[in-house]
Amino acid sequence: MIRYASLSFLILFLISSSGNAQMMDAHVGPDSVSTALVPAAGYSSNEGFLGGLIFSRYDYRGNQQPFNNLLETSAIATTKGFIEVDARYEQTQTFGQNIRSIADIYFYRYTQDQFFGIGNGTTFSDAQWDDEYYFFRSIGFSFDYRIRKPIYEWGRKQLDLQLGGATEYHIPYISDAQSSFALETPNGSEGGWVNNLNTGLIWENRDSEFDPHHGNRAELELRAAPKWIGNYGLATARLELRQYFYLFDWLTVANRLEARHAMGDTPYWELSTLGNKKTLRGYPLNRFKGNTSLAYTLELRTWLLRFPQLYGLKFGGQLFTDAGRVFTETDDVNDLFEGYHQTVGFGGAMSIFNPDFILRGEIGFSEDVSRIYIGVGYMF
């Protein structure tokens, strides 16, 4: 979604419609379709004037849980050439079977992609930031398709087997000769393809996928990208753990822990990276890179104002802190307990027409810069 180190202003407009007159109720009724359209306009000191669009469509026909199918798309472009487009489509019943399918498409053209080096102790300088020393330009796209099949179900508890594949292409196309990217020439600086097959397990017992208040989610993902079907041969392993619980019947405590490891002929964009819309929010984009990463997030969420008779309108807020670090081959076991970076931040949320539709905005603060993030749904 939208994320900049410096954003002067952003204006959002919400247009929503529903095929069910009861969408203002606490639960979405069966055989209903709900859509939300959010145009955006603003200005960034880094990228100039920007325009964007967020579109979501929720199809609950057939009384499928948590939905029949879901489409989420977003697009943003700026007057200085930045472009980012992503789309996700999920179907809970695929091929007439109890198989959930997820397709993700992503395209970007970064006029200010960022590279700070590899390692947990890379430095940041305000002067070099202002001189665009850390910046380079890049283009990339990816397509990812996965299916999930339940192998164990008991009430709300469910264990799924996941299988899938993905293809992606990245290329840095302009880099100043005196930039950090050009001087360090990381592996993958010539660009190329990575094509992978993946498998994994997902454990789920949350009370909601969109606004969970209690329960857990765990995911183990293994990916293999043979060099004979791409330009790089590598493998990755990722473990993500989430936990949610209620305090005082109005405050949701959300925890997320993620560990990731990459091995093999790994290009820079496939390294374990912290400093994005999900980890160390507030740091510059791709701030820390290494073979292994460990990241933790704690969020406190609550709905502050509710207007149930006004199309289910409600406003909320969240406080968060992110922590994490990366590891390279030169680190040892003692580094596991030190060198962690931390950010803090706050944000707001709004829901209207459909309780599953949540428009979120937040700002994170780091020792380097601050950054704004906008998107649909909670971060996790």
Rank of each mutant, 00 (worst) to 15 (best):
1 M>Q: 08
17 S>M: 05
31 D>H: 01
38 V>G: 08
40 A>V: 12
54 I>C: 03
56 S>M: 12
57 R>F: 04
68 N>H: 14
81 G>I: 07
86 D>R: 10
87 A>E: 09
98 N>P: 09
100 R>I: 10
100 R>L: 13
100 R>G: 09
101 S>T: 14
102 I>M: 11
102 I>Y: 08
103 A>V: 15
103 A>S: 14
107 F>P: 00
114 Q>H: 10
114 Q>R: 15
118 I>H: 05
139 I>C: 03
141 F>M: 12
145 Y>L: 13
154 W>K: 13
157 K>N: 11
162 Q>T: 12
164 G>R: 01
167 T>S: 14
179 S>R: 03
179 S>K: 03
181 F>D: 05
184 E>Y: 08
187 N>K: 08
187 N>S: 11
191 G>T: 10
192 G>C: 07
193 W>N: 13
199 T>I: 09
202 I>Y: 08
205 N>Y: 03
211 D>W: 07
215 G>A: 09
219 E>W: 03
221 E>F: 04
229 I>F: 10
232 Y>R: 04
242 R>W: 06
252 T>E: 14
259 A>D: 03
259 A>I: 14
270 E>V: 02
271 L>F: 05
272 S>Q: 02
274 L>S: 01
276 N>E: 12
282 G>N: 02
286 N>L: 08
289 K>V: 06
299 E>H: 07
306 R>I: 07
306 R>C: 11
306 R>G: 12
309 Q>V: 07
314 K>Q: 15
319 L>N: 09
319 L>K: 04
345 G>W: 00
347 G>E: 01
354 N>P: 08
355 P>E: 06
355 P>W: 06
356 D>Q: 13
359 L>K: 06
362 E>P: 01
362 E>R: 05
367 E>Y: 02
370 S>Q: 13
